[in-house]
Design a protein around this nucleic acid. Structure first.
Lengths: 337, 337
DNA sequence: ATAATACAAGTAACCGATTACCTATACGTC
DNA sequence: GACGTATAGGTAATCGGTTACTTGTATTAT
């Protein structure tokens, strides 16, 4: 494969001149020389070597997207805009999918440092499904090695991050159900959802503000997939005094809950109202279409890239951008009879 | 950031020895020296620089996944296994999503060559939505520059590829409908589906073999999203003599078709049977759950990685692996009344 | 005792760029 | 004519590793 040395020889100039011409560096070069070089490059089928460039520049123009899942629409939608925007700015994107396994996250971080990525957009994986801990060490390791980081989907101090106000989202969802006349409202939580605590807090606060006391039996948890929601709804609806409405913290679980209710012969929304979190084609497509608290996925991606650019270029103080959720009303909630 | 020169100085040895120890090269080194070096590396917080390694080795241990979409479950599921398997083998994965724009594909190819990726797993984008052409030049360009390539979702000569026998899938689906007594079977095609021609051929051949003549008005095309299916089903069902069953070439379109039928007040499956292509959560979740021709996504990913490894390591002749589809019977088809 | 071999490590070229610094002309000014 | 300054281009160090080849010493064989 041709190098700039080959071009230099063919055009009868030095490599410095070749480099200048090929990169449009601000240094005078005679038009005639320029043409000779361009010609030679073309004839040799020259392809610049970004590896060598990276080494010399000490920048790789590479960013990693480090996320817990890639089959969930939530991450997929964000990933799409991130990869696209980074591409527009000349960065390539490494896909790093931990599949919710914390050891994989650590491995990725190690490798990303070795590969000298310029930045990482990072949605941390929980250490164990049962808890809400993330491995702050991984993040620190990246920063210690001079890599710009932007986080989302979790809380860190001292890192740029895009934060979705799911507390308010849950508050709004609960209030919506209250307005529809519901008083016994269930809450299906995820065993490892990142910001679930704030969702649960929103739910609890809304009830409290409405003067409704919290019934712990109305709060249950399951895994983040459809079967998690399926089982949770059964637990709730078998209660002596079951809820008339339920809030579910994620998209798959909400669909599972809907399915569970149907299988029990419960009509949605006539006998049970359901609100999910995260919007996707799935939510539109089920029967009845789900009312959901939508997170602004495109915006999350957009902002993440902007924040990362800031960090990579100006190395300024970390910034946090707060984004709002939006209640998308479809047909899965009804006034209490 | 510490380099092997720093380690060499600190341990009082040469860089060659450091490199040998750190990479476990087969060259005798005294245990004492080895320990000194490892110690020094640890104390300096040494991080190997894979960029420098890549330059010296002329291998990057990087592979690109070049696909037309990342929000469609079909690609997402494949992407997950590919990224995982490559990771196990020490490769990082560049995510390259063309969003079905052919110019983007060309840009990616250019950049991937410059970045000297070792291989590309490639599902080509159609040149124009209307036609079935792919840009073979892009593939050639990769190969010409010594990059291993494995293709899927399209046909090429002289490249390793994993090929899904959708012809047989369509054949089987059509026969299934025939067995259920249907005689007027519609076909909803995609404007840019890769192997759609074979799907259509399977449909046509099955009918012919059953002695049923082809009615061109029963074959319509739309875009690959839900609205494409939605509009197509309306076209078909407004026919003077509408079909009693329909085959749809992709997952989103099938769901759109289902929705369209419902909106027209047509009962599925009582009045209209529908079979889709590609399986996903979506197909399970709709009402009624869709009967589909499932493509073996995990297997596609698995095989793609295996074929790529072959190409990268042994540079052997290209191989083609054929995979079968599977008819997943759910509830969207019924016997003709 | 000496030659041959194994062991342990070092020297320096190389991978393919970038770029600080230097050199040689040409031109204009006083 | 001497000097300052653009203009055009070259030299060589550098980025951080790898590795072919060399060297010096210890061990074994003869």
């Amino acid at each position: 494969m041709a190098t700039i040395y080959d071009i230099a020889k063919k055009a009868g100039v030095s490599v410095a001149t070749v480099s200048r011409v090929l990169n449009g560096v601000d240094h005078p070069v005679r038009e005639e020389t320029r043409q000779k070089i361009i010609e030679a490059a073309k004839e040799l089928g020259y392809r610049p070597n970004k590896i060598a460039k990276s080494l010399a520049h000490r920048r790789t123009y590479t960013v990693a997207l480090l996320i817990p899942s890639i089959t969930n629409n939530f991450y997929t939608e964000i990933a799409e805009v991130i990869e696209q925007k980074l591409g527009e700015k000349g960065y390539s994107t490494y896909l790093c999918n931990t599949q919710r396994m914390i050891e994989k996250e650590t491995q990725y971080v190690d490798d990303l440092i070795a590969r000298r990525v310029d930045g990482v957009i990072f949605s941390p994986t929980r250490v164990k499904p049962e808890d809400n801990l993330v491995n702050a060490k991984n993040l620190e390791e990246l920063r210690k090695n001079g890599i710009a980081v932007v986080a989302f989907g979790s809380h860190f101090s001292n890192v740029s991050q895009v934060y979705i106000n799911t507390y308010e989202g849950a508050l709004e969802a609960t209030r919506y159900l209250l307005e529809l006349g519901h008083r016994r409202i269930g809450f299906i939580d995820g065993l490892e959802a990142g910001t679930r605590k704030s969702r649960r807090r929103g739910y609890i606060d809304a009830l409290k503000m409405a003067g409704i006391s919290i019934d712990a039996s109305l709060i249950v948890s399951g895994n983040l997939e459809m079967d998690g929601g399926y089982e949770c709804v059964k637990k709730l609806m078998r209660l002596a005094n079951p809820p008339t409405a339920i809030i579910v913290v994620n998209n798959f679980m909400a669909i599972g809950a809907l399915k569970g209710a149907k299988d029990m012969g419960i009509n949605v929304p006539e006998e049970l109202s359901i609100i999910g979190f995260d919007d996707s084609k799935l939510s539109e497509v089920v029967e009845p279409p789900l009312t959901v608290v939508k997170q602004p996925l495109k915006e999350i991606g957009d902002v993440a890239v902007e924040l990362l650019m800031e960090q990579m270029e100006r190395e300024g103080a970390p910034r946090m951008v707060k984004l709002k959720t939006q209640l998308v009303v479809r047909a899965s909630c009804a006034r209490r009879k």
